[in-house]
Design a protein around this nucleic acid. Sequence first.
RNA 1: GGCCCGGUGGUCAAGCGGUUAAGACUCCGCCCUUUCACGGCGGCAACACGGGUUCGAGUCCCGUCCGGGUCACCA
Length: 494
Amino acid sequence: MALDMKYFEEMEKKIPKGKVRTRFAPSPTGYMHVGNLRTALYTWLIARNAGGTFILRIEDTDQGRLVEGATDVIYKTLAECKLDHDEGPDVGGPVAPYIQSERRDTYGKYARLLVEKGHAYYCFCEKADSAEDTGEFDRAEDLCRSLSPEEAQARVDAGEPYVIRQRIPAEGTTTFHDAIFGDITVENKTLDDQVLIKRDGMPTYNFANVIDDHLMGITHVVRGSEYLSSAPKYNLLYEGFGWDIPTYVHCSPVMRDAQNKMSKRHGDPSYEDLKDQGFLTDAILNYVALLGWSPRGDIAEKEVFSLDELAKAFDLAGMSKSPAIFDIEKLTHFNALYLRAMSPEDFARVAKPYIRETVKGESLSAEEIAALLQARCERLTEIPEKVAFFQELPEYSAELFANKKSKCTPEVAKEMLSSAIVVLDAVHTWNEGNIHDVLTGLAEGLQVKNATVMWPVRIAAAGQAVTPGGAIEICKILGKEETLRRLKLGLEKL
RNA sequence: GGCCCGGUGGUCAAGCGGUUAAGACUCCGCCCUUUCACGGCGGCAACACGGGUUCGAGUCCCGUCCGGGUCACCA
């Protein structure tokens, strides 16, 4: 059957031209790992930096790997991260559809076009069994490569199952250019006649990508560096069709350690996991952006970037060639920075659910507790444990009252506590100012340093050595009645 | 194993032929202080190795070593 050349002309006409167009093209596996998220971010950044278009395309050509609800994870994550897409399955666009399984016919047509042009051929061989892990790396001689077009067509017409393979030149070299790695040249004989169209009629990733990237007018192809060794084959494909070759941007992987990439298998956290562990989206994005890209010139030392600032500053020249190890400690640092930079109101809003996990009493103000926490927590998930003492006084021993630096011993504590109970009991309006005044007044009257009275009061009020906030703040939040109750309890231990 | 890519403190990294080799995280010390944090100040710690080229090399070239990727009808 003859090729409908008109079809190809129509497809060409639809391709948007002129502006930078990038695409994030995940497979719906139901899991957004950190490397993926970073690729999405860089892809988005390149588009936004150039005032271009960012496209979402779903790559679901592997029928056996479809995961229920997986695309929702992608939409949700992208939206949460504010990596908005201008075109995609959900919002449409000029080169729809944006889901590969819905573009099946297109790939077939282009594959046949390529056969026509002599850069691909039908192959009727049985699928090689266990191509993986055979320890055998040599390419077997493929008889189908030398079949005459007529004979091949006849077998296709006869209904024989086939795949379509790319015809790689046996001689010569292929050179491609990558924006990060520069020019890379390989000998064609090291390239194999990769499958373009599978037996089930679906395209392989390697083929669908080239077709879609071209038909969608993609100017910058951003992907992981694991595709670097396939790039010469892509070049050959583009050349075979006579198409312009996009700018390749191959990003080095995010590693869990020097030997292994981040992976679900190793239990490395996904974006969702990190959220569950109490990390903020903005902090994750900021950290991940710097894992593989760094600002140059006069902002070389800048580390905290909003998404907008990143979009302005981003440049391909700052991309790193080598793999980067994901460091949860540094992410934690960024998270702490973002937590502290929030307004007290915003912080209280995000912290409140965590506070209420352990502090149920409504009389204990979540807002006031949050204020104590803001400079003292690096991850939201640390909160419940840190503030549990507000709800319930922990068991503690009299030993806790001893503190050298505060010049406090159990004996001293006994004296301080009994005096403190008296002066606190006399406070009418229970606020920090008044509590502060009576307690420091007490220290002055007793001729001791402030710490000597603050230490035992805080210990008795909280029942633990380390607390967010000092004696005054804690007493204020506890309320007069509860404070006095706890102080008397403390006194009984002495 | 072939091919491709990479290698600056423990980690992320700046550096683009001449620098006392930035900065950040971590760790340690000091100051502040009402514990702990926050904040401020200071410190430990690096150019994988060997040959070239050059007046001069972390920067350029070659080799070695180490690490990663790839060699699927997976993406």
